[in-house]
């Protein structure tokens, strides 16, 4: 954790950590603390008086069917995005890991979407699949699909999942490729000599050895789907139609924007915090295991 060789200066280290500490305290801990306090308070309709209500805000939230639906929806989105993006990225990575001519070019051509911002992703996809002017909507209609994601909640949800998964392909691809390249080639050669054909080699050797990477990416993708889809949703559907694409983060945002119930909004933030803590804890347990492996 620390060096043996160090400086003995007394005040300098405090000066060095001061800027980061100030920002962390002012913009991270103070607001987080405010959210926690606020979540235990109830304001009357005119904001004139507040009272301490223990967990009432939380209880109300969980009694509210809409909140529960948002939780289920968020988890569904997360898994759908993670699974679709991970499987497609893995397929591409396995192909790119082969000794092909131009493999560097393939990598370059596959990783750049990482740099596209979520709101831009939303704009690109809504434009392609816009009910009236989208270039792909034409073909869907020709095939007999009644395509209108602006009115049909399921179609809106699948559009969000598609766009969000698309953006994440490059990230997953990059980490899968790194994971594949770190598998010692001799192990695969040994499997080949042991009579395993390519497909069997993949499922019995490569895939198990890749499992730490898969697990790591699963967590990262879930975190991504929780938070970074905000920009995609906001430019594509604004949570609609109805509430069919409203995730937990989006709900906090819109309800806060309407300036409604402060206590409820704070309670939602606190629940999100707890979820992040849980996800981070899972991720770190995994990192530890990777180290000892």
């Amino acid at each position: 954790m620390q060096k043996q060789a160090i400086f003995q200066t007394k005040l300098l280290p405090y000066a060095l950590v001061a800027p980061q500490l100030a920002i962390v305290l002012i913009f991270f801990y103070w607001p987080a603390l405010q959210a926690v306090i606020q979540s235990f308070l109830l304001q009357d309709a005119f904001g004139l008086s507040t009272s301490f209500v223990w967990f009432e805000n939380y209880v109300d939230l969980f009694k509210d069917g809409a909140y529960f639906e948002a939780i289920v929806r968020t988890f569904f989105f997360s898994f759908a995005i993670a699974v679709s993006s991970l499987s497609f990225a893995l397929l591409l990575a396995v192909m790119a890991d082969k000794p092909l001519r131009g493999s560097m070019l393939y990598r370059t051509l596959l990783i750049w979407p990482y740099a596209v911002a979520p709101p831009v992703v939303g704009v690109l996809w809504i434009f392609m699949l816009h009910p009236s002017l989208g270039v792909l909507s034409r073909y869907l209609r020709d095939m007999g699909v009644d395509w209108n994601p602006l009115l049909n909640g399921n179609q809106a949800a699948s559009l969000i999942i598609l766009a969000a998964a698309w953006k994440q392909i490059s990230y997953n691809f990059l980490f899968f490729l790194a994971g594949l390249q770190s598998i010692p080639k001799s192990v695969l050669e040994a499997a080949a000599i042991d009579g395993a054909r390519p497909m069997r080699r993949f499922w019995t050797v490569t895939f198990p050895l890749l499992s730490p990477t898969i697990f790591f990416l699963l967590v990262v993708n879930i975190v991504y789907a929780f938070f970074d889809t905000f920009g995609i949703i906001d430019t594509m559907t604004r949570g609609g139609p109805g509430k069919s694409t409203e995730t937990l983060v989006y709900k906090v945002y819109t309800e806060g924007l309407l300036g409604g119930n402060l206590g409820s909004s704070a309670a939602q933030s606190v629940i999100l915090m707890i979820m992040v803590v849980a996800l981070t804890a899972i991720q770190f347990r995994f990192v530890e295991r990777k180290v000892t492996y």
């Binding site: 103070w30 607001p31 987080a32 959210a35 704070a266 992040v276």
Partner: peptide
Amino acid sequence: LMLPVEVRIYPTYKI
């Protein structure tokens, strides 16, 4: 690490 801006939107805005 565990406090992304999304979980403390409005209090941070207020500050």
